[in-house]
């Protein structure tokens, strides 16, 4: 089967300055990542701030071109952003971001905003009926469609954004922290909605979040990012039952839970990584509780440690696989 979306060794740098007069220098936000998303599959991307997960999401949508590597959608190279081919393709790829209020126009009733993509892409037919159907599919009423964004709650606004993203019947949906701004009870509503819509429509989905618990809930596969690289990738069940990479193990153990704790908490020392000051060798070694001399000088490449399970760590080999937690 051809993958819906494929990223091969993509890298993206930005230029920053230390201060007003400082030397401009490139910061590698994404540093050589290969990932695949199949139709009907949700790939979760986990990472802390500065890990490059949002940049990766933007490249997956073709909003930014990688400096190195390739992105293919349906086996065809991603066209340049803004080009005619890219605009046509955008029908098939949609996105949902964290802040629905920022993504909506405050002056327009939400139903008009939901059908806007149909207008933009010149999709004919009864646009209003399509809009009402989209509203219903996310659990909103026609009356709510007549309201302006500020008359809706945060969860309802995010439903509007989802309805708008799905009205062109896309095949790929990229969600960047879509429920992070929502309260727990509302977050559960939106997570369930995304799971249902994804299953009904056979969407390929990329779900980017810092919240492991939500990613666990929604993803088939999960990639863990640290400083622009994927340090571990596996089926969600495997990754959370038996995390292998020392960073994943710390992340999993740090997730707060009201239930009994099954693993000893690993508290990482040190600061979150700064992409502008990438350590030599393995980027995680200054915070890694098990780092060796080799980790300080040589960056580990992702390696297959079990079927469908890769990790980038010198200490991990198929034989050294850590038992389930």
């Amino acid at each position: 089967m051809t993958p819906l979306l494929q990223l091969r060794d993509v890298a993206r740098s930005y230029v920053t300055r230390n201060n007003l007069f400082g030397q401009a220098r490139p910061v590698r936000a994404v540093d050589g990542i290969s990932l695949t998303v199949n139709a009907g599959e949700t790939l979760g991307i986990v990472g802390e701030s500065g890990s490059g997960k949002s940049t990766l999401g933007r490249m997956a949508l073709g909003l930014e071109l990688p400096d190195e590597g390739t992105v293919t959608f349906d086996d065809a190279p991603m066209p340049a952003p803004g080009s005619a081919a890219w605009r046509t393709l955008r029908r098939q790829m949609q996105m949902v971001f964290q802040d629905p209020l920022g993504a909506l126009d405050r002056r327009l009733p939400v139903l008009e905003q939901i059908i806007e993509p149909l207008v933009i892409h010149g999709i004919d037919g009864d646009q209003r009926s399509a809009g009402l159907a989209a509203l219903a599919s996310v659990g909103l009423s026609a009356a709510q469609g007549a309201r302006h964004p500020h008359e809706l709650s945060g969860g309802q606004r995010q439903r509007v954004v989802i309805a708008r993203a799905l009205i062109t019947s896309p095949r790929l949906l990229v969600c960047d922290e879509p429920v992070s701004a929502l309260d727990v009870s509302i977050q559960a509503q939106v997570v369930n909605l995304l799971i249902d819509l994804q299953a009904e429509r056979g969407l390929g989905m990329v779900f980017i979040s810092h919240d492991l618990r939500v990613v666990r809930q929604i993803s088939n596969r999960v990639a863990v990012m640290y400083l622009g690289r994927v340090v571990e990738e596996a089926a969600a069940d495997d990754l959370f039952r038996a995390p292998q990479h020392p960073y994943t193990r710390a992340l999993v153990s740090a997730a707060p839970s009201p239930g009994p704790r099954r693993v000893e908490r690993v508290i990482l020392t040190g600061e979150p990584p700064n992409p502008a000051a990438r350590p030599e060798g393995c980027a995680f070694h200054p915070r890694c509780p098990v780092a060796t001399a080799r980790c300080r000088t040589e960056a580990p490449a992702p390696a297959r440690i079990a079927p469908g399970h890769t990790a980038a760590c010198h200490l991990l080999t198929p034989a050294a696989k850590v038992a389930a937690r």
Binding site: S153, Q156, I186, A188, I195, R262
Partner: peptide, 22 residues
């Protein structure tokens, strides 16, 4: 309801959302 709505790392049982809003 708050406890049931909270996803955990241990299972992927469907979340039980609290209907409606505050």
């Amino acid at each position: 309801g708050l406890i049931d709505a909270l996803p955990t790392l241990d299972d992927t049982q469907r979340l039980v959302a609290i209907p409606g809003v505050v």
